[in-house]
């Protein structure tokens, strides 16, 4: 009983303007630490860009937040729900899109949307309305009967996004949504993302493209499972005296690699070595 009360209290104390908050979130796969004591918070209605080289722990973090993986230790709340114990409540309220196309290729655009509408328990009227809106948003009008497998990369991404948005999630989590997508589709995709943020949706997105990162409200940079810096793009550039984000990150990667090479102990501190205050306030 006590435990539940404590949980409830924490839920109530949660500032209403925070969509995601983690405290010393850690994921260990046997001996390997994939995510090391990660602390971050994402304000509601903002676009948070999650950056880092391949294998740095981005996807693992995202999967913990979605309830796909159980954290080894630490705390995390998504939309006020505990990632350890309330993952099903989280799942009802978030939209998720993985880097690999994960809809049914042998189902048509329409059938994929119908399936997910059913899974999210949309009523008939709402389903028809949402489908019309999303097909229009994704520019898939006229392709409703086409099999998802026969769509090209950009269309597939936008269909996946549509399926993730059917139930009007409060938080949208995108894992490298634009990897391998042509520049035009990429541009369209990001226009949609910004549109959604303007409507009040919180968006957590991982990417390798610096031009995409530049347009995020907040950026977190993760390397070897540690969150190295966090802040708005302009703050980061200013603080490091760099010309652009790309330079900032190359500098950070080199510093971190040098530290790792110098003494294996160095990297263990995690957020202790943050170069910019983790709570980015001024916006």
């Amino acid at each position: 009983m006590k435990r539940r009360e404590a949980d409830k209290q924490m839920h109530d104390n949660q500032p209403n303007d925070v969509a995601i908050s983690c405290e010393r979130l850690t994921k260990r796969f046997q001996e390997r630490i994939a995510v090391n004591s990660l602390t971050l918070s994402v304000p509601k209605g903002s676009i948070y860009g999650f950056l880092g080289p391949n294998g740095s722990g981005k996807s693992t973090t995202i999967r913990m937040l979605c309830g796909l993986l159980t954290p080894t230790s630490g705390r995390g709340t998504v939309l006020g729900y505990d990632v350890m114990t309330q993952s099903e409540a989280i799942k009802q309220r978030i939209g998720y899109m993985s880097q690999k196309f994960s809809l049914y290729e042998d189902l048509s655009v329409d059938e994929n949307l119908d399936f997910y509408a059913g899974v999210y328990q949309l009523g008939k009227a709402e389903r028809i309305q949402r489908k019309r809106e999303l097909i229009e948003m994704a520019g898939l009008t006229g392709r409703e009967k086409q099999l998802a497998g026969s769509l090209s990369g950009g269309w597939k991404q936008r269909l996946a996004l549509s399926c993730a948005l059917l139930h009007r999630p409060e938080l949208l989590i995108l894992d490298e949504p634009t990897a391998g997508v042509d520049p035009v589709s990429r541009r369209i995709f990001w226009e949609v993302i910004h549109d959604l943020a303007r409507q009040g949706m919180t968006i957590l997105v991982t990417t390798h493209y610096m031009d995409e990162a530049q347009t995020c409200d907040w950026i977190g940079f993760i390397f070897f499972g540690n969150l190295l810096v966090q802040g708005s793009p302009s703050e980061l550039i200013e603080h490091h005296g760099a010309d652009n984000l790309e330079d900032v990150f190359i500098k950070l990667v080199k510093e971190e690699e040098a530290r790792q090479a110098a003494g294996q102990k160095g990297g263990g501190g995690g957020t202790g070595d943050v170069l910019v205050p983790v709570k980015g306030e001024g916006r």
Binding site: K91, Y96, F101, L103
Partner: peptide, 13 residues
């Protein structure tokens, strides 16, 4: 194998 499971288990099903 096809990866469709990942999308399915982030739903409340």
């Amino acid at each position: 194998e096809r990866g469709t499971m990942e999308q399915l288990i982030v739903t409340p099903i």
